[in-house]
Design a protein around this nucleic acid. Structure first.
Lengths: 184, 184
DNA sequence: GTCTATAATTTGATAGAC
DNA sequence: GTCTATCAAATTATAGAC
């Protein structure tokens, strides 16, 4: 099936691009590197994404969709706010362990002043989506850590420390601490 | 004076390089961009820093020295732990407002997997230094936020959110919250 | 220390055949 | 959709004159 194969190739390109960006930032990716890793030529990557910002935007948008899909809705759940934030932290911890890379939006957010507008817009949209999810997850919660921006900040920063110092416990400890100081 | 002029030029190069890196990451800087901004040729930049990782390393090391110098020693002070962390947060907030850029180590830490070893080593050294400063600053402190790694994580992440969403209050609010939950 | 000149490589991007 | 071929520009880096 043509459609299937197209999707697979597109996914492969996005997979490699996401992986590279999450490890070294937007400027650490090149069409050639991606093409080689996928097993095609750089001109074929250009066919799917004419400009580099098209590729970057697509990577972020797919990341955003996948992320919320994995997390699920925070409203329909029977969990407590504490459990939801714990799940958010587990998602990041698992992602850090499995991919050996931090949140895509964290890397791109850190270098946002040097990004194409199209990519930046997608990053901003993702962060707003993530903040909204966290706000909803915190409905009815209290305590020192019960604030969406604060929780996201702590987790993003802990990922930076974890990857820079090669110590995943930085993230785990931050999540533990956050979760502990959310009261229902 | 030759020495004076040399130092000024060297400082200018490091100034421009730091500014560019803090805005767009390590790969967003080029010898030509730096040279143009300083008012010299790229080969002259190579004279001072043969390889790009030499430049990157020097930028981080100077940043580390300046940072602790601005903060001062956390031990000889008569301040409470709360006041010291507040001062750390103010340093970052002021730096964000003045330079329009986040912490150098945060940007480079986020893309650490794509950095030259020499630069990475300097970033790790800076983070360890910063964590040690914060640990000493927290001597005798308690409460939900009284942990060096946690505090640094929250501040670094809050800077990412602040710059990505163009809202410096993210950092200010994080600092306020952290400071509020350190008990002496 | 800075310059000119230049090399070698990489990069984002396009044209056109299949 | 993918390929070959190619391009213009940019990048890191070096050699040698001043």
């Amino acid at each position: 099936m043509i459609t299937k194969q197209t999707n697979d190739r597109l996914s492969s390109i996005l997979d490699v691009a996401e992986s590279h960006i999450r490890r070294g930032g937007f400027n650490a990716v090149s069409f050639r590197d991606i093409a080689t890793a996928v097993g095609i030529k750089s001109s074929s990557v250009h066919y799917h994404f004419p400009h580099k910002h098209d590729l970057g935007k697509a990577v972020v948008e797919r990341y955003a969709i996948n992320f919320v899909e994995v997390l699920g809705s925070p409203i329909n759940s029977l969990e407590t706010p504490t459990m939801r934030i714990e799940r958010l932290g587990a998602a990041y911890s698992g992602s850090l362990a499995q991919d050996g890379a931090i949140c895509l939006a964290c890397v791109l957010g850190a270098e946002s002043a040097g990004l194409p507008e199209e990519v930046n817009g997608a990053v901003i949209a993702f962060f707003k989506q993530l903040l909204q999810w966290t706000e909803e997850a915190l409905t009815g919660a209290q305590g020192p850590a019960a604030d969406a921006s604060y929780i996201i900040s702590a987790m993003q920063g802990a990922m930076v420390l974890s990857i820079a110092l090669n110590d995943p416990r930085k993230l785990e400890e931050a999540v533990t601490r956050l979760v502990r100081f959310i009261e229902v």
